[in-house]
């Protein structure tokens, strides 16, 4: 009976949402499709952040740097060496992951807010280096993607991008679901809760933090490739923005950090909110959507510490336990 209950309670809603997500572009207009698509991308980036930020408890504010490293790696491979981003995205992940490992090493010495500040400086440094090495990166002018065709991950309409990001988002959730029950994931959570105790039970703290940061950056780098393929154009100042780093972290925190669904929930709330308001008031009142974004962030952090997923789980959990008792 337990299995049956689990099936109806979990799998059926998941299947319904999956079908809705899959057929959505058939019924919605291009604007809505584009909004949802961006929400998926940000959800994936927030989930990538979650590995080290949520499960690892290392509050990174430099993830835009990994996004940019990924975007630049695959774009340079595509434009200069004619290597398809379908291949390049893995290289992008590796380059970003290597940078992530460096940040992970730094996290051994930098605790709490020091780590956050260190990652900000790291991201600034990456931006300045991208600007400085003009020969490879195009400097402040950036790189325009001039190729075309699905073999280069470039599409004429928004719908293929929608499915690309939909799959990316689903892959992110499945990965986190696997990750949180994996030996390594459990070890990382133990390190977050109490480093010394984790060390006491034989977890290699050094290894956990460095690999955790590398995985997080690897995934963010892949997200960077997809992002670049979608906007067709990369430039240091539009990619390595503190705004992006904080947005990635904020989406995850609002949705619920340290859970597979937090990123998606946060992105589904914050991304459409800001994009929709931008479209609505864009010309007249630029900045209005950002105010709401700030207000939502403030309210969630002050009033709902576990994020929205945490709140839902507490509410639902209580309901179910009430039923059982009754």
């Amino acid at each position: 009976m337990g299995l049956e209950l689990k099936f109806t309670r979990k799998l059926i809603p998941a299947a319904i949402l999956l079908v809705i997500g899959a057929v959505f572009p058939l019924f919605a207009d291009e604007f809505l499709v584009s909004i949802l698509m961006q929400a998926y991308l940000w959800a994936f980036l927030a989930m990538s952040w979650d590995v080290i930020g949520g499960y690892g408890g290392q509050f990174s504010l430099g993830h835009a740097a990994f996004l940019a490293l990924g975007a630049y790696t695959s774009t340079i491979l595509l434009q200069s060496y004619n290597i398809s981003p379908w291949v390049g995205m893995w290289a992008a992940g590796v380059v970003a992951g290597a940078a992530g490992a460096l940040v992970g090493i730094a996290s051994l010495r930098l605790k709490g807010p020091f780590f956050a500040l260190g990652t900000i400086a790291f991201a600034e440094l990456v931006k300045l280096l991208l600007l400085y090495f003009k020969g490879i990166t195009g400097g402040p002018l950036g790189i325009l993607i001039t190729k075309s065709g699905p073999e280069n991950m470039l599409f004429e309409t928004q719908t293929p991008y929608y499915y690309l990001m939909f799959v990316l988002m689903l892959a992110g959730i499945l990965f986190l679901k696997w990750f949180e029950s994996s030996r390594f994931g459990i070890g990382l959570v133990a390190v977050r809760e109490d480093e010394e105790a984790a060390e006491g039970v034989g977890i290699n703290v050094y290894r956990a933090k460095v690999i955790g940061a590398a995985i997080s950056a690897f995934l963010t780098g892949i997200g960077g490739t997809i992002y670049a393929q979608w906007i067709h154009f990369i430039r240091p100042d539009i990619l390595v923005k503190l705004e992006y780093s904080t947005q990635i972290a904020a989406i995850d925190v609002v949705g619920g950090a340290g859970s597979p669904y937090g990123g998606l929930i946060g992105a589904l709330i914050l991304v459409p909110l800001s994009l929709y308001l931008n479209a609505l008031f864009g010309g007249m009142i630029a900045g209005l959507s950002l105010i709401l974004y700030g207000v939502v962030l403030l309210i969630v952090v002050v009033m709902i510490p576990g994020g929205i997923y945490g709140l839902l789980r507490r509410r639902l959990g209580r309901k179910f336990s009430d039923k059982r008792r009754g």
Binding site: F59, P113, A286, G287, I291, V295, L298, V302
Partner: peptide, 30 residues
């Protein structure tokens, strides 16, 4: 004040002041 003494308060203040930052910048823009 609402978050500073709670567990994880440092990170929380970072986020709440980020919210304030976004609000101030947007207000100035408007």
């Amino acid at each position: 004040e609402p978050v500073v003494e709670k567990p994880g308060g440092h990170e929380a203040t970072l986020l709440t002041t980020l919210g304030i930052s976004v609000i101030l910048e947007s207000l100035a823009l408007i």
